[in-house]
Design a protein around this nucleic acid. Structure first.
Lengths: 169, 169
DNA sequence: GATTTTATGTCAGCCTTGTTGACTATCCAA
DNA sequence: TTGGATAGTCAACAAGGCTGACATAAAATC
């Protein structure tokens, strides 16, 4: 803790760990997250949905047939909260809920064609911004970006993320 | 758009721009942001405050004497929303509001000693996680992390961020 | 077969934090 | 001095978190 404004140490600078640098990282997260959600927010507003609907659709799209409980643990909200969102999505015909065959207590959630269409619109907007940022920063920066984000997650969430991450590719 | 699962192009791989990679980046942002806010959230709960209070305190700490309007443009909320938060912070003696000398319409905001104490507690928790993530990822990754985040911001917010960023150091 | 646990859904009610609209106080410029 | 712009406040409403209580069906256990 005593490397005031010191220079390189042991061949590698520790300057990136100063409180000042950390504070900049914190603010970067804050402002970037705003940008990250800005485009979907605009689209959602037109459809009278909120971020909660987006998150639900994202993960249903990602893991079709997932159960309510699965979704709960990924989203980290209460079932009452999720249920409200899910109910409107089902009523509006964006999400289909099917009673499980093996375990009839479970409901398996999938996006309908209409749901897929909106999900595509939302995620394309988000990917588009991410693509621009990635392109501007370059592959090396992207690798670093992902490394830091992964290290910042709660262990439980990192598990979730890794499962999704590696399941996909 | 036609580099299916292709290899390096023009000496530099474009694999990091596939939809799959972008989707991973999106989810990394989602999960990481949760981690990012987890520690302050726990502390805030004990004090009966929310994230809005944290954000206000952060930027008041950062720019002591700032006006309500300044804060508004940084936080990107309506003044009514901010006002409510500010009112409780002032009532609770965490923030001091001083009528401007030159322009008496303005209120200049500063943290009281009590406010500084809470801000320190909150930001230390957040820095601590950030520090761990930075340390785990290393300086190169941190540079990339910041580059991508900066590229992801809305231009207006990037301006704000840059001003703060460069004003501080 | 009876009991307990699990998965889901629903109602009621609360809180935080967004929103818009109306209002006051002050400054500045015609 | 008056009228428009600017800074801030107050009131009321909505979205989406939360807890708690309760219902139902199905699975698992005794």
């Amino acid at each position: 803790m005593a490397e005031g404004g010191a220079g390189p140490v042991g061949g590698e600078s520790l300057l990136f760990l100063t409180d000042e640098q950390l504070r900049k990282g914190i603010e970067a997260m804050f402002f970037a997250y705003r940008g990250f959600t800005a485009d979907p927010d605009r689209i959602l507003e037109r459809h009278d949905y909120g971020r909660a609907h987006h998150r639900a659709m994202h993960f249903i799209h990602r893991s079709p047939g997932t159960t309510v409980n699965n979704l709960l643990s990924i989203l980290g909200v209460t079932k009452q909260s999720l249920n409200r969102v899910l109910r409107t999505l089902i009523e509006d015909g964006l999400v289909a809920s099917q009673v499980g065959r093996r375990d009839k207590r479970e409901r398996h959630l999938t996006l309908t064609e209409k749901g897929e269409a909106l999900e595509r619109e939302l995620s394309e907007a988000q990917r588009s911004r991410m693509r621009a940022a990635y392109r501007a920063a370059g592959p090396q920066a992207v690798a670093g970006f992902r490394q830091v984000l992964e290290a910042m997650m709660e262990p439980e969430m990192r598990r979730q993320y890794m499962t999704l991450r590696d399941g996909g590719a």
